[in-house]
């Protein structure tokens, strides 16, 4: 039987251009997003149908999350945040289909996305506010003697953001998929172990069913968490010194 971590193996499909199963599912996620949204909005109906309702709910959901955190001026990042949310959500959910590769269970992918977020924050922060952006590390109202320590802490906290952002998503997806595979493996192991023990095999099956539901929740929740944290970091770029 395959090992629980075999599902995370990146396998080349077209080695010449480094096209792997990971690349395939990235492209697949993007295609599902763009195709799905275009299909849902094809009628541009005043009274939306089911598909268009879903598209509008996703749009309003991300827009509200963004404006709640950053205010109206945060809407300039809306396409970016929407792309991130949809990409992470779709990649997570595609990974739930048996046999499909989970792009977000690759630390390099989540870390690259986190770096993209932090890079956007840093570049926009400096472009929009110049040196004033560094006020992010010197909160107002702190006593003078405490300021160096606070500044060091703030810098460490800022630098640890991409790590925590990427590790959270990666670890959640990885752990969930391993747990599912392990319990699925138990069903087979117990079922083939002997007549008496085989009677126990429905137990891990029930567990796997429960875990599947939980993993769908985690897939959506982690996409949301990633998006909310992105919004909070973007708020720092929009309003440093708060």
């Amino acid at each position: 039987m395959a090992s629980p971590i075999e599902q995370f193996q990146v396998k080349p499909i077209i080695p010449v251009i480094n096209f792997t199963n990971s690349s395939l599912f990235m492209i697949g996620a993007a295609a599902v997003i763009v195709g799905g949204l275009l299909y849902a909005t094809r009628k541009k109906a005043l009274v939306p149908g089911r598909a268009q309702s879903v598209a509008e709910i996703l749009h309003d959901f991300v827009a509200n999350t963004l404006t709640d955190t950053t205010g109206r001026e945060g809407m300039k990042f809306f396409p970016f945040v929407f792309s991130l949310f949809m990409f992470v959500l779709t990649a997570n959910l595609l990974g739930m289909i048996p046999g499909f590769f989970t792009v977000t269970s690759q630390i390099v992918v989540t870390f690259a996305l986190a770096l993209l977020v932090i890079g956007t924050v840093i570049i926009y922060g400096f472009v929009a506010h110049g040196v004033h952006f560094l006020h992010l590390f010197t909160p107002s109202g702190v006593p003078g003697w405490l300021l160096p320590f606070i500044t060091v802490i703030e810098i460490i906290s800022f630098l640890s953001r991409p790590i925590s952002l990427s590790l959270r998503l990666f670890a959640n997806m990885l752990a969930g998929h391993i747990a599912l595979k392990v319990f699925g493996g138990f069903v087979v192991s117990l079922g083939t172990a002997g007549i008496g023990i085989a009677l126990l095999s429905p137990l891990p099956l029930l567990m796997a069913v429960g875990l599947t539901a939980l993993e769908f929740l985690v897939a959506a929740l982690q996409a949301y968490v990633f998006t909310v944290l992105t919004c909070i970091y973007l708020n720092d770029a929009l309003h440093p010194g708060h």
Binding site: N18, S23, V34, K44, P79, F82, M86, V108
Partner: peptide, 30 residues
């Protein structure tokens, strides 16, 4: 390296398509 390159390509494509095509349409409807 391969994953980063393909992620960059995919995400750039996704961002472009969403910001230029899908989102204006969706926002327009709303």
């Amino acid at each position: 390296a391969g994953q980063i390159i393909w992620l960059a390509i995919t995400f750039a494509l996704l961002y472009t398509l969403l910001s230029k095509l899908v989102l204006p349409r969706l926002s327009g409807i709303i």
